[in-house]
Amino acid sequence: MTKLLLSLHVIAAIVAIGPVTVAASMFPPSARQALAEPGSERAVSTVRLLHRICRVYAGLGIAVPVFGLATAGAMGVMGDPWLITSIALTVIAAIVLVVLVLPRQEEILDGLGDTATVTSPKATVRLAMFTGIFNLLWAVVTVLMIVRPGSTTGA
Rank of each mutant, 00 (worst) to 15 (best):
S25F: 15
M26P: 00
L136G: 08
V56C: 01
T21S: 00
I92C: 03
N135Y: 14
M75K: 10
A58L: 06
L50Q: 02
G61F: 12
T46N: 05
Y57T: 08
A23L: 13
A74I: 05
A123H: 09
L35V: 09
E37Y: 15
M129F: 15
I133R: 05
V98P: 01
I92K: 03
A128E: 11
K122P: 01
A88I: 14
T131C: 04
L127G: 01
Q33P: 01
I87N: 01
V101K: 00
Y57A: 07
I95P: 02
S45I: 01
M26H: 01
G59Y: 15
L136Q: 06
A93C: 12
A116R: 14
P38Q: 10
L83K: 10
F27L: 07
A24V: 13
R55L: 12
K122A: 14
V91W: 10
P81S: 12
P65D: 04
F130H: 02
A74C: 07
T117R: 15
M129N: 06
A94C: 08
L49D: 00
A58T: 15
A70F: 15
E107I: 08
T71F: 14
R52K: 13
K122N: 12
Q105K: 02
S40P: 09
K122T: 07
I84P: 03
I108N: 00
L83T: 09
W82Q: 04
G113N: 10
V64H: 02
R126W: 14
F67D: 00
P65E: 09
M129V: 11
A36R: 11
D80P: 02
I84E: 10
R52V: 13
H51R: 10
M129H: 05
G132N: 11
I108M: 01
M75L: 13
P65Q: 04
I87Y: 08
T85D: 06
A24G: 03
L83M: 13
A36N: 08
G132K: 15
V91Y: 10
S25V: 01
S120C: 09
L50K: 00
L136C: 05
F27I: 01
W82I: 07
R126E: 13
L100Q: 06
V125S: 12
V66R: 11
L136R: 11
A58R: 02
S86D: 06
V56N: 03
A94I: 11
W82M: 06
E106W: 14
G73A: 09
V22F: 14
V125Q: 12
I108V: 08
Q105C: 02
K122V: 08
V99E: 07
T124V: 09
A43W: 14
L102V: 12
T71C: 07
L35Y: 08
S30C: 03
L69N: 05
L136D: 04
S30W: 05
I133H: 12
A58Y: 13
G39I: 06
V125F: 13
S86C: 11
Q105L: 07
V101C: 04
A123S: 09
A94R: 01
I108P: 00
P103M: 00
L97C: 00
G132A: 11
S120V: 11
V98N: 00
A93G: 10
P81E: 13
A93I: 11
R52C: 04
A63R: 08
G73Y: 14
P65S: 04
V77C: 07
T131H: 09
S86Q: 09
S30A: 15
